[in-house]
Lab assay of single mutants.
Amino acid sequence: ASVAVIAAGTQGNIFATSALRSMRFLQILRMVRMDRRGGTWKLLGSVVYAHSKELITAWYIGFLVLIFASFLVYLAEKDANSDFSSYADSLWWGTITLTTIGYGDKTPHTWLGRVLAAGFALLGISFFALPAGILGSGFALKVQEQHRQKHFEKRRMPAANLIQAAWRLYSTDMSRAYLTATWYYYDSILPSFRELALLFEHVQRARNGGLRPLEVRRAPVPDGAPSRYPPVATCHRPGSTSFCPGESSRMGIKDRIRMGSSQRRTGPSKQHLAPPTMPTSPSSEQVGEATSPTKVQKSWSFNDRTRFRASLRLKPRTSAEDAPSEEVAEEKSYQCELTVDDIMPAVKTVIRSIRILKFLVAKRKFKETLRPYDVKDVIEQYSAGHLDMLGRIKSLQTRVDQIVGRGPGDRKAREKGDKGPSDAEVVDEISMMGRVVKVEKQVQSIEHKLDLLLGFYSRCLRSGTSASLGAVQVPLFDPDITSDYHSPVDHEDISVSAQTLSISRSVSTNMD
């Protein structure tokens, strides 16, 4: 405001104040949320940038038409019409005319000016109207692209899951042992070998009828009888010197917790746990005396209480009078009846079946994303299906024409109403129809010849004498029936064969 007042002088105070007050009108834009329509302006900018070359070309040609039209109309009207006294007036008329506004304040009066105005109007309006069409088509394409992008975003994750499931299904095939990355992934998420051994031990116990592997080994086996189970490696608790092959000598807290839970599941009659010990102070733990958990001091820290809870689970003690015997301790020893080589084939089979199920689920979810969402998608899918159906029908028609023997030239002739090819031409065609016709002709010829021969033979049998045999009239074959199959017997006289037959029969009768 200060700059405006200084620039306008003393009389500019009122002007500056009114100008600043008129800017209050811009507050109405906040009512229509114009300040939060950044996406709309961004869309407009992207459309203009995408079609910038077309817009520049249309505007450039339109500007050239405007300059030439205004100049030529000015030359034609400057002497006869006072409205075109300057080139600026003519340029104003050209702008209003070519933009199809047409105020009518300035019009050419001479015939030359009117002809020039009409010609440049028809030429220039087309170029001035091009930017509107370019922007409209650009907006339509952009909206369609955003629509497809939205659908693509919805299909991206199911497609990625389907590709991942397909690759993992491919890589978990037993015949592709060189693909090891997927197996490394499952090695990292699978439970430890100790848990798998416990699982298979329970399965084997159920197969043995509820007997433990130790009891199965204690059962008497006759001499020479084959053992029911192959000899396997035996594993004891981590306190002993022997372990399962492939295990580490260090046992983690999870393994100890699972070991304690498995020992508690063996039965309360074979294992008696004394009350857990509780320390009397955060600094020292008295293991010899058993106290109640309700006497825990409230001033303990979080670490002390955590250690106390761990001691409740991981440090059970047995009383002296209830101490288990050596046999019970041997039964409680952890027996590992299986090795990694025995378990891994079954584990890989389970993983393979899981990968198949996940692949089928991913495939079903991806197919669900291909379903249409709204009416536009339904129409688009219907149009695509219609085009596909037309293509299939056209391909089927082409194959039928190839089989029947109607080529493209014959199809055009039928469409024009011309006469089709004759039967002889159809026979000569190298097509399925021509071959079928040729075979039918040959079969008819053979059938006719057989009928003639059978009739001749029956007449010979009825006559009974050589004289009557020679008097029999043998009809000749019709050459038209034989089609294109020409037998060497067709052109010979059958009477010669009949005479030869009669001579042979007379000779045979004389010999008798």
Rank of each mutant, 00 (worst) to 15 (best):
L169M: 09
T172A: 08
T172I: 00
M174V: 07
M174K: 06
R176P: 05
R176G: 11
Y178F: 09
A181G: 04
T182A: 13
W183R: 12
Y185C: 13
Y185H: 10
Y186F: 06
I189L: 11
L190P: 11
L190V: 10
P191R: 04
F193Y: 13
E195Q: 05
E195G: 09
L198F: 06
E201A: 11
E201G: 12
H202D: 12
H202Q: 06
H202Y: 08
V203M: 13
Q204H: 06
R205P: 02
R207L: 04
G209E: 14
G210D: 14
G210C: 02
G210A: 15
L211P: 11
E215A: 02
R217L: 03
R217W: 13
R218L: 15
A219V: 07
A219S: 00
V221L: 12
P222A: 14
P222R: 06
A225T: 02
A225V: 05
R228L: 06
R228G: 04
P230Q: 04
P231R: 07
V232G: 02
T234P: 07
C235W: 08
S240N: 03
S242T: 10
S242A: 00
C244G: 10
P245H: 01
G246W: 03
E247D: 02
E247V: 06
S248N: 03
S248I: 04
S249T: 11
R250L: 10
R250P: 07
G252D: 06
I253F: 05
K254Q: 13
K254T: 01
D255V: 10
R256G: 09
I257N: 14
R258P: 03
M259L: 06
G260S: 01
G260A: 14
S261R: 08
S262T: 12
Q263R: 09
R264Q: 12
G267C: 12
S269A: 08
K270E: 08
Q271L: 10
H272P: 00
L273V: 08
L273P: 07
P275R: 08
P275H: 05
P276L: 10
P276T: 14
T277I: 02
P279S: 07
S281A: 14
P282A: 11
E285A: 08
E285D: 02
E285K: 06
G288R: 15
G288D: 13
E289D: 07
E289G: 03
T291N: 06
T291P: 11
T291A: 14
T294I: 10
K295Q: 09
K295T: 11
V296A: 13
V296M: 14
V296L: 04
Q297R: 10
K298R: 10
K298E: 04
S299N: 06
W300S: 15
S301R: 14
N303T: 12
R305C: 15
T306S: 13
R309Q: 06
R309G: 12
A310V: 06
S311A: 11
L314F: 15
R317P: 14
R317S: 14
R317C: 07
R317G: 04
T318I: 11
S319T: 09
E321K: 12
D322N: 10
D322H: 12
P324S: 14
E326A: 10
E326K: 12
E326V: 03
E327Q: 12
E327V: 11
E330G: 04
E330K: 05
E331A: 04
E331G: 07
S333T: 11
Y334N: 03
C336S: 08
E337A: 05
E337V: 11
E337K: 09
L338I: 02
L338R: 04
T339P: 12
V340L: 01
I343F: 12
P345R: 04
P345A: 07
T349A: 12
T349K: 08
I351L: 09
R352L: 03
S353Y: 03
I354M: 00
I356N: 00
K358N: 06
F359I: 02
V361G: 01
V361E: 01
A362T: 06
K363Q: 01
R364K: 02
K365I: 11
K365Q: 01
E368Q: 06
E368K: 07
T369A: 10
T369I: 14
P372A: 07
V375M: 03
K376R: 13
K376T: 05
D377H: 09
V378G: 13
V378D: 04
I379V: 08
Y382S: 03
S383L: 12
H386Y: 06
H386L: 15
H386R: 10
T398N: 09
R399Q: 14
R399L: 07
V400L: 11
I403M: 13
V404M: 07
V404E: 07
R406L: 10
D410G: 06
D410E: 02
R411M: 02
K412Q: 03
E415K: 13
K416M: 05
G417D: 05
G417R: 09
D418H: 12
K419T: 11
G420V: 14
P421H: 07
P421S: 05
P421R: 12
S422T: 07
D423V: 10
V426E: 12
D428H: 09
D428E: 02
E429D: 10
I430N: 02
I430L: 02
S431I: 02
M432L: 10
M432R: 12
M433T: 06
M433K: 03
G434V: 12
R435G: 02
R435H: 05
V437F: 08
K438R: 12
K438N: 05
V439M: 02
E440D: 00
K441E: 03
K441N: 04
K441Q: 03
K441T: 04
K441R: 14
Q442L: 09
I446L: 10
K449M: 11
L450Q: 10
D451V: 13
L453V: 01
L453M: 05
L453Q: 02
L454M: 08
F456V: 08
Y457S: 06
S458L: 12
S458P: 06
R459S: 13
R459C: 12
R459L: 13
C460F: 12
L461V: 04
S463F: 11
G464D: 06
S466T: 10
A467S: 14
S468N: 12
G470A: 14
A471T: 04
V472A: 09
Q473R: 10
V474G: 15
P475R: 07
P475S: 13
L476R: 13
L476P: 02
F477L: 13
D478G: 09
D480G: 11
I481S: 14
I481N: 13
I481T: 13
D484Y: 15
D484G: 10
D484N: 14
Y485N: 13
H486Y: 14
H486Q: 10
S487R: 15
V489L: 13
D490A: 15
E492D: 13
D493A: 09
I494L: 15
I494V: 15
S495F: 13
V496L: 10
S497F: 06
Q499P: 13
Q499R: 15
T500P: 15
T500M: 15
L501V: 12
S502T: 14
S502I: 14
S504C: 09
S504T: 15
R505G: 10
R505S: 11
S506L: 09
T509S: 01
N510T: 07
N510Y: 08
N510K: 06
M511R: 12
D512E: 12
D512N: 11
